[in-house]
Design a protein around this nucleic acid. Structure first.
Length: 838
RNA sequence: GCGAGCGUGGCGGAAUUGGCAGACGCGCUGGGUUUAGGUCCCAGUGGCCCCAACGGGCCGUGGGAGUUCAAGUCUCCCCGCUCGCACCA
């Protein structure tokens, strides 16, 4: 059905012709698009080349905010433009629907988390339709749907079979506000990424995904994907690869005890004058026994939060407290006994939890040595970048560690070697003598996925006293959440449920209990882009052939806040699933676009700040086309938008003008008129802008593309004043509608249909006719010594002599040429001519 | 401290990659039409200066130097802002 007929039927007003009235046309058209499943990808969809366009699915915390409006407006312009340029676009949508806010709502207001979540989803879905975003609703999914999380659980079991799931003890991050453990990635500056509470350390047994197995590949494959460099850098830093050696230090005195350290600077080993253990190191506990001072120290350390432990605030940088232990270590290279300490600047979960301390070459060791009056031994003579010797170091007067290049001294056989050469030689020698091995180390930790929460996918494991942890058999999936959880209890409602966890062991049949933790919601979002390929398939998670045909995702759009968390986890999933035979691609997201934020008066918008501007209020006043246009006209997609600087009324004014020009000048029956020159000028302006705007679209510069369209409407008004009418004007108006359709889908659809009877969204992208741009004459800027002194019009094919003659004839130019002799003339055809005069 | 990015009118932002700085829009000023209008149309709008006017000159892209016939764009130094990392041995 015609959209104009539909609008007329749905609006009581009969006359909508004269005035641009988005509030009359948009809701009717949005409803029609939804009823018609207008944007579903099916056999009737035009387009040849496959393109998987994905936008990060939202969490349904309430209605859409401006950030959503920005990301979806950018994404939809991209998608609609691709469709018009012959692509077959997969453009799915869903919700990341598990998470703590639903539980908090349940606890505070007694709401059912499922109800609360689904209500919010319906609200967001209605807003998305109202804003005209062309998502394929046949793909719709929600991660809290058992039909979805059944396969989340299946993936868990697949990873288990692949040996990529661990259950292990450890000191874990505990967020007291969320009452759950967190992954390392969810701790930002010692605080919970969600609630901002200070994170505590707790010893717990938890489930982990062994993402560290893929550390090297996760670094290497960054080379092959087209992502912003800063995001790649953030991932590289997070994974934190370093090269060095593990070296064994014997404990001095009787006994066979040995301790392995990890160091990136084995070349400095002759400067290792003491030794430090993390306070939690098992050998320390064994050796110190129930020493009271030590017990007190460990107790004090454990009370410190990570914030205190890692604080970089204040003048004295880090507090270098430590405790002298009751034994010494032996430096294997010098044979010397060196004192051993426990200090919390050494972390149990990096390297081996113990270090050789080299005060001369490591700032932390230097500070500790100064604080505890320990030996600082100079083992390196600094050199500059060219290898020239600089002033030697003086242990008594130096004020900080030296970390630059140099030549080894006081280092036995290695004296005189460059530091990097010494490093290689010492690693070789360590290996030859059986004292250690050269190694690569990563900062990345395994991904802790257990959460002591109830609105999430239950971990499909059963704990049996006899058999240990057993996987839930595949035919018993999904392990479904009970629908009668009590959210007023202390602790996890799922764990406190009276009956849910009691089951028989799948191995031996005896009474056993389910694991009552749920999976981190980042597990849900690590594979949703695969489920979109067949969201209703109840026989498998996704069809492999289809996944291989559509992946990797050609364009992923979303916020930079996921630079590490979500993007790293999803990459890991794809690699692990590939190795399990479920996929044939290495990376999920070939290209990534991080759109900027929408802020207000320089500050992030938030409910608590009370500075919220919502898409709904903009749409209610100006309509969706104006809001979308305003966002895209503001700046490039990557840049932040300060809404205080924006004026939707400007965009509204221009769209009104587009409407009016179409109504007043665009009718079929208007006869052709205007001089050849004026018609040619209009057509040249139009085709020039088609070419320019097309390239802007290709580069996702929607702001300048819109500027080109505005230039066309300016040219139309000028041509109209010059007496041009009929076909040339209609061509120009059509061009604006076609170029504008991806950004403002409502107004363009209505106006196009009136003149052509079909939908603008089914048209091919316009092609600029470059031959129309060729003019007989060109205007050249005339410079004298690089300064503009005039302008001349010459034949387009004029040679240098003709150009010089014409340029020299200009009065003002002649005035400046008279000041000296022309030494050189530079002629850039079509642009300028520059006389060099001396 | 380390790494990356960015500094252009009153504002958001343009500038074929070295070739007329300020496209397009907002705002502002003046004029016109209609006038109940916050509508619509036209003109102007970086700063300083010369001219009755037409015109014209000088300066100008955070600051300073350099390369070039020509620099917002390339090179070096400095200043400022934003983001990321930061006891990772």
């Amino acid at each position: 059905p015609s959209c104009n007929a539909r609008i007329a039927a749905m609006t009581a007003a009969t006359e909508i012709d004269d005035r641009y009235d988005p509030l009359a046309i948009e809701p009717a058209l949005a409803q029609q698009w939804y009823d018609d499943r207008r944007w579903d990808l099916d056999d009737t969809t035009r387009g040849r080349e496959r393109f998987y366009a994905l936008t990060m699915f939202p969490y349904p915390s309430g209605d859409l905010h401006m950030g959503h409006a920005e990301i979806f407006s950018i994404h939809d312009a991209l998608v609609r433009h691709l469709r018009m340029t012959g692509h077959r676009v997969l453009n799915p949508f869903g919700w990341d629907a598990f998470g703590l806010p639903a539980e908090n709502a349940a606890r505070k207001r007694g709401a059912d988390p499922a109800r609360w979540t689904l209500d919010n989803i319906e609200e967001q879905a209605a807003s998305i339709r109202r804003l005209g975003y062309s998502f394929d609703w046949s793909t719709r999914l929600e991660t809290c749907d058992p039909a979805y999380y059944r396969w989340t659980q299946w993936i868990f079991l697949e990873l288990l079979r692949a040996g990529l799931v661990d259950r292990k003890d450890g000191l874990v991050n505990w967020c007291p506000g969320c009452e759950t453990v967190l992954a390392n990635e969810q701790v930002i500056d010692g605080r919970c990424e969600r609630s901002d509470d200070v994170v505590e350390r707790k010893p717990l047994t938890q489930w982990y995904f062994r993402i560290t197995e893929y550390a090297q590949e996760l670094i290497d494959d960054l080379e092959s994907i087209d992502w912003p460099e800063r995001v790649k850098t953030m991932q590289r830093n997070w994974i934190g690869r370093s090269e060095g050696a593990e070296i064994t230090f014997p404990v001095a005195g009787p006994g066979q005890d040995e301790v392995v350290v990890y160091t990136t600077r084995p070349d400095t080993i002759f400067g290792a004058t003491y030794f430090v253990f993390a306070p939690e190191h098992p050998l320390v506990a064994a050796r110190m026994g129930d020493d009271e001072e030590f017990a007190a120290y460990v107790e004090e350390v454990s009370r410190r939060s990570d914030i205190e432990r890692q604080s970089t605030m204040g003048e004295g940088r880090r507090d270098k407290r430590g405790l002298r232990l009751n034994f010494d270590m032996v430096n294997p290279f010098t044979g010397e006994q060196i004192p051993a300490f426990a200090a919390d600047y050494v972390l149990m979960d990096y390297g081996t939890g113990a270090i050789m301390a080299v005060p001369v070459g490591d700032q932390r060791d230097f500070e500790f040595a100064r604080a505890h009056d320990l030996d600082i031994r100079v083992i390196i003579h600094p050199t500059d970048d060219d290898g020239e010797l600089l002033e030697p170091l003086d242990a008594d007067t130096m004020s900080e560690a030296y970390v630059g290049p140099g030549v080894m001294v006081n280092s036995g056989d290695y004296d005189g070697l460059e530091w990097d050469e010494a490093k290689a030689r010492i690693i070789d020698d360590v290996e030859d003598r059986g004292w250690g091995v050269g190694t690569v180390n990563y900062r990345l930790r395994d991904w802790l996925i257990s959460r002591q929460r109830s609105w999430g996918a239950p971990i499909p494991m059963i704990h049996c006293d006899t058999c240990g942890p057993c996987p839930v058999p595949a035919d018993q999936l999904p392990v479904q959440l009970p629908d009668d959880l009590d959210f007023q209890v202390n602790g996890s409602p799922l764990a406190m449920h009276p009956t849910w966890k009691h089951v028989d062991c799948p191995e031996c049949g005896r009474a056993a209990v389910r694991d009552t933790d749920t999976m981190d919601t980042f597990v849900d979002s690590s594979w949703y882009f695969l489920r979109y390929l067949a969201p209703n398939d109840d026989t498998r998670a996704w069809p492999i052939d289809k996944a291989n045909a559509w992946l990797p995702i050609d364009q992923y759009t979303g916020g930079v806040e996921h630079a590490i968390l979500h993007l790293l986890y999803a990459r890991f999933f794809v690699k692990a699933l590939r190795d399990r035979g479920h996929l044939a691609v290495d990376e999920p997201f070939q290209a990534l676009l991080n759109q900027g934020q929408v802020i207000l008066d320089g500050a992030a918008m938030s409910k608590s700040r009370g500075n919220l501007v919502t898409p709904t209020e903009i749409v209610d006043e100006y309509g969706a086309d104006t809001m979308r246009g305003t966002i895209l006209f503001a700046s490039a997609p990557e840049d932040d938008i300060d809404w205080a600087d924006m004026s939707p009324s400007g965009m509204y004014k221009w769209l009104s003008r587009v409407w009016r020009l179409n109504v007043e000048l665009g009718a079929d029956e208007v006869e052709d008129a205007g001089s050849d020159a004026d018609v040619a000028a209009l057509r040249r302006a139009v085709h020039e802008r088609i070419i320019a705007a097309s390239s802007d679209y290709d580069n996702r510069k929607y702001n300048t593309a819109l500027a080109k369209m505005m230039e066309i409407t300016n040219a139309i008004m000028e041509a109209d004043r010059a007496g041009v009418a009929g076909a040339p004007i209609r061509e120009a108006l059509d061009t604006v509608l076609l170029l504008l359709a991806p950004i403002c889908p409502f107004i363009t659809d209505v106006l196009w249909e009136r003149r052509h009877g079909d939908s603008v969204h089914d048209q091919d992208w316009p092609v600029g006719d470059a031959t129309l741009l060729v003019a007989e004459t060109v205007d050249l800027v005339v410079q004298v010594n690089g300064k503009v002194r005039g302008e001349v019009t010459v034949a387009a094919d004029a040679d240098q002599a003709a150009v010089e003659a014409a340029a020299g004839a200009d009065d003002n130019v002649a005035r400046f040429l008279a000041d000296g002799t022309v030494r050189r003339v530079i002629h850039v055809p079509g642009r300028l001519v520059n006389f060099v005069v001396a």
